[in-house]
Structures are given as structure tokens and as C-alpha cells.
């Protein structure tokens, strides 16, 4: 069982991501609606893995990713985005994103990346 934070302004996107996560694992899931909420929840909830959208009102995902990585340089943040511009991928990788998953999320990909992130966390 792991603690997972999902940050996305879209209810639909959050619901669909949750449906990709294995229910039987009994993960504890918390959700945030924008970057600022994401950063605050990261500190109070201390998730093992964070799923982060990029385009959000107020603080966007890139800024939130940078802040979270400053607070916790070992933070494992998986970026979920419909924006698959090479530049964006380079930028979030530079900022220390653990992985980038294209929206709409596919169950197998999400689970594989989640397993990888959890394993990396256990190893560190």
C-alpha cells in the first residue's frame, strides 16, 4: 500500500487516472486541483508518488514540479499531459520529473510507471 497524490484541475482526468490504479492494492489517494494545492498537499500528505497535470489555473504543473523537487529532491513526480511537445518533455525532465505519461492515460502504462516509481522509492 502506497500514498498517491493526484494533481489535476479536471475532475474527469482525476477520475480516469484513479480508474487506472489497481484497486486491490488499496493505495491511499489524495487529490489536488491546481499547482499550489499540489505543493501544499505534498508537504502535508507526503505521498510516495505524485501524478501531476501541467496545464492548470493559478500555479501550473511545471512550477509545482519545480517547487516540490526543491522541497524534496527525491520526490517522484509523474507528469500526465496531453501536451507532448518535445520542449515540454525536456523541460520537465530537466526539473526532475520521474516520467511523462501521455493523456488520456492507459492503464498498463500508468501501472508500469507507478510500479517503477514505487520500486525506486523503496531502493533509495
Amino acid at each position: 500500500m502506497a500514498k498517491i497524490l493526484i494533481v489535476d484541475d479536471s475532475v474527469v482526468a482525476r477520475m480516469s487516472l484513479k480508474s487506472c490504479l489497481p484497486k486491490e492494492a488499496g493505495h491511499e489517494i489524495t487529490e489536488g486541483k491546481d499547482g499550489a494545492e499540489g505543493v501544499a498537499l505534498y508537504q502535508s500528505f507526503s505521498p510516495d508518488v505524485t501524478f501531476m497535470d501541467l496545464t492548470m489555473p493559478g500555479m501550473d504543473g511545471i512550477t509545482a514540479l519545480a517547487e516540490i523537487r526543491t522541497i524534496d529532491p527525491t520526490a517522484r513526480v509523474i507528469i500526465l499531459t496531453a501536451d507532448i511537445q518535445r520542449r515540454t518533455i525536456e523541460r520537465v525532465t530537466e526539473l526532475g520529473a520521474f516520467a511523462v505519461v501521455k493523456k488520456p492515460p492507459v492503464k498498463e502504462v500508468v501501472q508500469a510507471e507507478l510500479d517503477r516509481a514505487l520500486a525506486a522509492g523503496a531502493a533509495s
Binding site: D9, V12, D53, T55, M56, K103
Partner: peptide, 15 residues
Amino acid sequence: FFRAIHTIKGSSGIV
């Protein structure tokens, strides 16, 4: 405007 269109696009892809 941009963000809202982007969100609609993302969610439309999901459903």
C-alpha cells in the same frame, strides 16, 4: 481561454 480548451480536449480524449 487556452487552459479551458486544453482541459476540454484532455477530458474528451478520456471519455
